Amino acid sequence: MLEHGGNLRDAALRFGRDDWLDLSTGINPHWYPAPALPGNAWHRLPEADPALAATAAAYYGAPRMLPVAGTQAAIQTLPRLRKPSRVTVSAPSYAEHAHHWSEHGHTLTQTPYEELEAAVAHSDVMVVINPNNPTGAVVPAAQLLRWADQLAARGGWLVVDEAFGDTGQHNSIAAHSGRPGLIVLRSVGKFFGLAGIRLGFVAAHPDLLRGLADLLGPWTISGPAQHIALAALRDQAWQDDTLRRLHADGERLQALLAAHGIQSSGTPLFQWWAEPRAEEFWRHMAERGIWIRLFKQAARGVRLGLPPDEAGWLRLRTALTEWTTQ
């Protein structure tokens, strides 16, 4: 199983403390306040509520959407819907994509963002994380749609993972996902801070959504998750306030890092940089109870999410000062 952020039990075992400031995930630390649940949410079999798919389609601007148990469910299942293909995955990026395409007989190539344009001609499937996790790199929507047309003309797919796209909705291509061969993944875990309910959505042509739904089977989304997500997706006031706060906090984090000599990139939810002494920096933070994400492979560097409160900001600033003055 691949390593991910949020693994605080591992942190406690390694460093023997329980007062962690968890900056390892890029998840909004100010999560949507879940409403009270009706009693039958725990009792009934969780048949799919059509209102959830319709509400998600309205929020994300897509023609139609399929709710899935987190985008992870789609990432694991999509490779099973194609015969062996030539698959290009943007790199560096969320490692689960490459892992699962390589597990199902496909020929996998991991390609840097600046080389993706050239890779379209010799790919059957392209997977692009946009904005990228962990670097924050962005491919303009118009460019993605050109690639989608080229791939679809020969029966190919463009899979665009927009899990961190809520803070840059202007660059989403979900509105175009009704065309064959274009698949867009969205998540309520990041922007809404609801990773624990395991809910995401796939926007695509109806034929592909039917095939995906058949593979995933019935009752994929729990009753409580459906109830909470409906409230979150409909709450325009909370969304607007959260968007303003995340943009301000994202700029604050980038400025704090720059004040300590670190030039980073990212999104309003996280910052990343190619730290030359990545493992030393990760250990320095961990010894001070700050859990961050260390990347050892293609994206050798570190990623930090947003502190949840002023005490967390102070703790991070102190640790950064100690790092730069040691």
Rank of each mutant, 00 (worst) to 15 (best):
T109F: 06
P206N: 01
V127E: 01
H97V: 09
S177N: 05
R86H: 09
P92G: 09
T109Q: 13
W101I: 01
I75V: 15
W101P: 00
Y113Q: 14
P206C: 01
G196L: 02
L108T: 01
Q72M: 12
T71H: 14
V120Q: 11
G168F: 02
P140M: 11
V89P: 00
A195W: 04
L185M: 03
I75E: 13
W101V: 00
F191W: 00
S187W: 13
G156T: 06
D161W: 01
A141V: 02
V184L: 04
H100M: 03
T71F: 10
P92K: 03
V139F: 07
A118H: 15
G70D: 09
E115W: 15
V160T: 04
Q72A: 14
H176K: 01
Q150V: 01
V139W: 10
S187V: 07
V125H: 10
H97D: 11
A98Q: 00
T88A: 11
G168R: 04
P131R: 05
G70W: 09
A121R: 15
P134N: 10
H205K: 08
Q150C: 08
G168A: 07
S85A: 09
K83P: 13
I183N: 02
R198H: 14
Q169G: 03
Q76N: 12
A98G: 15
F192I: 02
I197K: 11
P140L: 05
D161E: 05
R86L: 05
F164I: 01
G193Q: 05
L194Q: 02
L185R: 03
G196K: 08
W147E: 10
T71V: 14
R82F: 14
R82Y: 12
H104D: 10
L116I: 07
L108R: 00
A137S: 04
G136E: 02
W101Y: 14
F201D: 03
A74F: 14
E114D: 15
T77Q: 15
H99C: 04
I129F: 09
L145A: 08
L108E: 00
H97W: 15
H205R: 10
L185H: 04
P92D: 07
S187C: 12
A91K: 10
F191Y: 10
G155W: 08
F191G: 00
L144V: 08
H104L: 03
Y113A: 13
R86D: 05
G105C: 04
L199G: 09
H122V: 11
A142M: 05
G70H: 11
A141P: 07
Q76Y: 12
G136M: 03
K190E: 03
A118Y: 15
H205T: 02
V125Y: 11
A148G: 15
P84D: 00
